[in-house]
């Protein structure tokens, strides 16, 4: 595999704490990865990169709403570049806080950027920070983020968030997400059956058990679970026994690399 012709940008800001794991995961698959702070991002040309990742964390202390401040800062600093980046079909991945950022910036679920968000990641219905392993089912495996999986495959990946309850502004937006097959991952029971909101399998009360969605064109994806925390076998709960070489999160990064290799 010769993925080192691909470049990824992992953005960070005050409160980001999953940037390093994300970089390690991408580099393990051969992608050249740079971590860049928001304060120096303006010196960068985004179009040099094939992938931008907004990693997990608690950017700006989750003040106002999780992801809101970073989301708006991204718009203020990078809007034009980001719109071009998306339009060219390059990839953006938002994990956990990164998903909240993409939602608040209006990058998801539409195409490009809209000033007003049409989705929200609200406080968990348990009113608690939920840190646990969950099972998610692949609903659409024809996107750059899911090609290395089967449709209907169940992945085990952990979540860690207090604001992850996926909401849409209207029933119509939810229906559109379904119609366009933008729902990539749904929380399910360990056997793959629908969770139907059942706690703790649906850890936050998300509408329609939604764990991750992509944009209409499919090149922007946001998800609450942390694939970078389930990348190596030694990160799994069975680490002290005989863990497999890789966790299920690996498949998401592998999909990205496979996609880049076949289309770029």
């Amino acid at each position: 595999m010769n993925a080192n012709r691909f470049k990824a940008l992992v953005l960070r800001t005050g409160g980001t704490n999953c940037d390093l794991e994300t970089k390690v995961a991408l580099e393990e698959l051969g992608v050249k990865t740079e971590i860049v702070h928001m304060n120096s991002v303006e010196k960068k040309n985004l179009l040099e990169y094939h992938l931008i990742v907004f990693p997990g964390g608690f950017s700006y202390g989750d003040y106002v709403r999780a992801g809101a401040v970073w989301g708006k800062r991204v718009l203020a600093k990078l809007r034009t570049q980001l719109e071009k980046f998306i339009e060219e079909g390059r990839l953006i991945l938002g994990i956990c806080n990164g998903f909240q950022v993409l939602a608040e910036a209006g990058v998801l679920p539409g195409n490009g950027v809209s000033e007003t968000p049409s989705i929200a990641l609200a406080n968990n219905s348990s009113a608690k920070y939920e840190c646990r392993w969950v099972w998610i089912r692949v609903e659409n495996n024809e996107t750059p983020f899911t090609t290395a999986m089967r449709k209907g495959e169940v992945l085990r990946i952990p979540v860690g968030h207090a604001e992850g309850r996926f909401l849409t502004g209207s029933e119509e937006i939810l229906n559109e997400l379904k119609r366009n097959e933008q729902i990539l991952f749904r929380y399910v029971l360990p056997n793959g059956d629908d969770a139907n909101g059942l706690y703790p399998y649906n850890p936050n009360g998300s509408t329609y058990d939604i764990a991750g969605i992509c944009s209409k064109k499919g090149n922007v994806m946001g998800m609450m679970p942390h694939p970078e925390r389930a990348f190596f076998g030694w990160q799994l709960p069975e680490w002290s026994g005989r863990p497999p070489e890789r966790g299920d999160g690996w498949k998401i990064f592998k999909s990205i690399v496979d996609y880049l290799e076949s289309y770029r």
Binding site: T116, I119, G169
Partner: peptide, 10 residues
């Protein structure tokens, strides 16, 4: 409010 303080979804 529209740009930052509130998310019109909720």
């Amino acid at each position: 409010c529209k740009k930052l303080l509130a998310n019109p979804v909720k």
